[in-house]
Design a protein around this nucleic acid. Structure first.
Length: 278
DNA sequence: CGTATATGCCACCCCGATGA
DNA sequence: TCATCGGGGTGGCATATACG
């Protein structure tokens, strides 16, 4: 018999719980394909099953969990022989996405693992217990949800520290860090590679493999995103913006910006201003 | 022990931009 | 027009680690 706590659709604040529950699925039990209007995390206490989003299919088992994002079609099903027993919590709010991001979770990366000492299922168990409270119920559930997410975030941290990141990912992080700090200066792909300590062609291959674009393409996109931000400041000339993102030649900047956004900087700024005023 | 896989460097070729 | 330069990408090869 599943235990479920269902709240009224809450007003939108920083973090709101929609529901939570514990369920021991029967063999082959499934849900979907369907969408949710909130984030929904399942943590698997035992057994097996799979989670499918788009054409990605994730076989999952005890000690793992998955995130369903709002308005995304998903399907999940318990194993026929060893059906999973999971606990789940649904939530949303203005900060929900930030917390999930801190835990390394997103639509693109919806899977996580957890250790016994993380006690993620136990937190949901306490939520279900708190469901029988009176006037303090909503506050208790909110607190437990925060604690649950804090465990999830902490868990993501140790995963990184525990060298879960491959060398490739570490190199990419280092390269991106260099770009983040130096985008406003004239930097070359060779300098980025030297900073990371890799051969230029090898770094290029890593970018292509992991990010599906070359280091230079990544750098240009990064600069254009920054430029877009700078252009909101009307006191800066296009030349000022160009120099602020590492272009000493405004014409070259305009060309790159047009290629990126479809509009030359001056027209882009004009249109953005019109959009903002009505 | 041999083999597979990941990692990483290097030589090389091609392209486009630039500038004399 | 042609040389140069920065850059992207490939294939070959070496090394280390994991795995049976």
């Amino acid at each position: 018999m599943p235990q479920v706590i269902d709240l009224h659709p809450p007003h939108r604040s920083e973090l709101d719980m929609y529901n939570c529950g514990i369920e021991d699925c029967r063999p082959g039990h499934f849900f979907g394909p369907a969408v949710r209007e909130y984030y929904l995390i399942h943590v698997i206490r035992s057994g097996k099953g799979f989670f499918q989003v788009g054409n990605q299919r994730y076989p999952l088992r005890r000690g793992q969990g998955f995130l369903i994002c709002p308005d995304v079609v998903t399907f999940y099903q318990a194993d026929q022989d060893d059906p999973w027993h999971y606990s789940w919590v649904g939530f949303n709010g203005t900060k929900a996405r930030d917390y999930l991001e801190a835990a390394g979770l997103s639509q693109a990366n919806p899977i996580f693992g957890f250790d016994r000492e993380d006690a993620l299922p136990e937190w949901i168990g306490r939520m279900v217990e708190a469901g029988s409270l009176g006037r303090g119920r909503e506050t208790a559930l909110r607190g437990l949800l925060y604690l649950f997410l804090s465990r999830l975030i902490e868990n993501a941290k140790t995963e990184c520290a525990g060298n879960q990141l491959s060398k490739k990912e570490q190199y990419l992080q280092k390269a991106i860090e260099f770009i983040r700090i130096n985008y406003s200066r004239k930097i070359t792909v060779r300098q980025i590679a030297a900073f990371v300590g890799l051969d230029r062609s090898y770094l290029s291959a890593l970018f292509r493999e992991e990010l599906h674009r070359s280091p230079q393409e990544f750098l240009i996109r990064f600069r254009m995103e920054k430029a877009r931000g700078f252009m909101a400041n009307e006191s800066l000339s296009i030349g000022d913006v160009a120099r602020s993102v590492g272009y000493d030649d405004p014409l070259q900047f305009s060309k790159a910006f047009k290629k990126w956004s479809g509009l030359p900087p001056s027209r882009y700024r004009k249109r953005a201003g019109e959009d903002a005023s009505g």
